[in-house]
Write a protein that binds this DNA or RNA. Structure first.
Lengths: 217, 217, 217, 217
DNA sequence: GATGAATGAGGTTTCATTCAT
DNA sequence: AATGAATGAAACCTCATTCAT
């Protein structure tokens, strides 16, 4: 006769907590699966098993495989975006801004092993929604704009040679991101034994090349 | 004129020609399919249909989907490799060698629409055999070595600043190849309206940045 | 009365009951199919249809055709074995023990129409697992040992002539089992019109021949 | 201008010789295949390959898999039957006639490894044609009739106890043939190390048991 | 007679998804 | 929320058989 409502509330709270737990377990397992196998190669059974969750629960929480993928991937980008925004765009010099972009790239890929394969697959078969999500990361990070601005200013001041801003921006971004995207391949091709160190030394080198490459002599 | 052996030969030739035709049709359809959908998303039925070939023929000629993929992809790289070897490594200057590498990259991707997605997917989930095949393209092309040598010589001569050769080589390669690999994304992100022109102007810009970037002032 | 755990149990029980039902239906249909067609001639479609079960359920419960076969056949032998163990090894005389073996054989084959074809096919291409299962039936039945012992004792007592026990045991077993194994053929060859009666009269005859055949005169 | 017809004849003769060779190769490979896998498990491809013959040749010579099976199996029985007829039915005593039957059985199975599995499979799923063929072997061999006659005479003479002739005949046949039919199983069950010797000693034992078993004391 | 390629029907198995409880 | 069972469509692959030469 007493606290049935209370116990109902408790139940609900507990249920929600558990549900959140279930969702999270599913998401974690799904990222892993999608990263390793792509959306077509991914198996709902495998996700359920590795999440230790009943298969039907996946449909209960995510409706369909496609939707699971979408939610997983966008949440993945949200995550990256958030970390991107946390990178303080420090001071005023171009050099520092370039360093920030390099750091951003490093952050994107260093966090886990899933970024690389997931992004590569997206690029191979780009869905508008996802392209947009990735674009947003960079836009929100405002770092590219900052670099563009600083570079433009430098050109106007006569410090840097006049160059197409897009080409220049892409030049730096390429030097910074490409290694991260195809690490295993480059390591193999160039016979790099210590990828960690190679990656650590890289920002300095590319900033150096980039700035020198554009400076007026 | 009607000696049996001769007609035997004719027969064989004709048969082989047809077979080659069938194989080729399959390969062509398969590349298309694998490029668009990846190995897991690819459908044998679709390949057969678009090749206008009986489905069983695919198994007759290629044994399994996996094997078809492997043969298709390696033949694809052989193809690229051949074209790579045809790129004459012109003269003696570093500038020209860099131009050759840019041309190689352009060649790799410009030939058809399949290179980009196929390579990206491979990079996402690299099979040793295929990594090796890609590596071979570059090794055989000897262009990287040439660049490395010229760059090393230039450093020794005091023309270029001392820099880790691998880092430098990768810096240029990145600038050259990255845009090709993720064209649609970059076009979207930077709002590039005329990709053709952007790509055409690119080699000059990156060679310029790279050489200036390394030159001693 | 409506406590959740209880209803949970109910649910589980019901589910398991249904599942058992499905499994049983599959097994029943599968025995029939395998007996009639052998493992290679058997068709999963046909099993599913005659069990009134979705084809995929067979894989859900048994993983593969091979495995279904194995489970079906071993369960089949377990079944026989159980019935074998129920045959009381009556008294002490050799005659009764021989009667028991004849009864065992009759039991093995009389139960249904599947024993004959299934066992024959197994013998044609014996899988170790299954040979073992059949051997176990006879070993567990302990009847052969009993016979061997009684026979040995009889020989020692001078009642029976000395004869290789294995040869003797096999002699009786052959007389007892062979007709069951190839009934249709023998009926045809000897023109037996009333197999039932022939089989019924058989134990008496063969026990008679066997015992007389070994007795010291 | 000369011997075209002659060369035609030569050709034909050669062709027929070769053809016979091809047929034989096919038959040999087919027996092997059918013995190991049964008709449903047999693969035309495998037969062609192991016969080193083009698959289409099998159809050219035998029309269909079923027909190949039938021809192979009936020729197989013809073969056995021929050997059966070569077994001289020696003298006049029942003992010798029984020995002849035992020898016949031995001959049937000893010739190759195929008799056992082929006959077992036939028995599992008996086709009338084939049952007839096997029956014919025994009838033609006239040994059973001889035994029946001798046994009948012996009973009439008061030498043997009155017993149903069919039961008696089958008793002996069972003892003689059963071991051959399920050799691997019996060897395993009884732990027989030297099957050759066991088989060699068997006729004497079973003739002994049989005759003693029927003799009037 | 002989060959390699081709065909069509069908076989086993898989898998996203749903249902009943 | 959770589970085990169920479903139907389709995927990959096989195989007896035939064709063209």
């Amino acid at each position: 006769m007493n606290s049935e409502p209370e116990s109902d509330i408790k139940r609900e709270v507990a249920a929600k907590a558990e549900a959140r737990g279930t969702r999270q377990k599913i998401v974690a397992a799904a990222i892993h699966e999608f990263a390793h196998h792509g959306i077509d190669g991914a198996r709902i059974d495998r996700i359920a098993k590795s999440a230790k969750v009943n298969k039907a629960m996946i449909y209960y929480h995510f409706d369909s495989k496609d939707n699971l993928y979408l939610e997983v991937v966008t949440s993945f980008y949200k995550n990256i975006r958030q970390r991107a925004e946390e990178i303080v765009l420090p001071s005023e010099t171009l050099e520092e801004a370039l360093g920030a972009l390099a750091t951003l790239h490093e952050t994107m890929f260093a966090s886990d092993d899933y970024a690389r394969p997931i992004m590569l697959r997206e690029m191979a078969d780009p869905r508008p929604e996802v392209l947009e999500a990735i674009s947003a990361v960079f836009r929100s990070a405002s770092i590219p704009q900052k670099i563009a601005t600083l570079l433009g200013d430098g050109m106007d001041r006569g410090e840097y040679r006049h160059t197409d801003i897009h080409q220049a921006l892409l030049a730096f971004a390429s030097m910074s991101i490409y290694y991260h995207m195809v690490t295993p391949f480059i390591n193999r091709l160039l016979g790099i034994d210590d990828p960690r160190q190679f990656a650590a030394e890289r920002p300095k080198v590319i900033i150096d090349i980039f700035l020198n490459g554009l400076k007026v002599r």
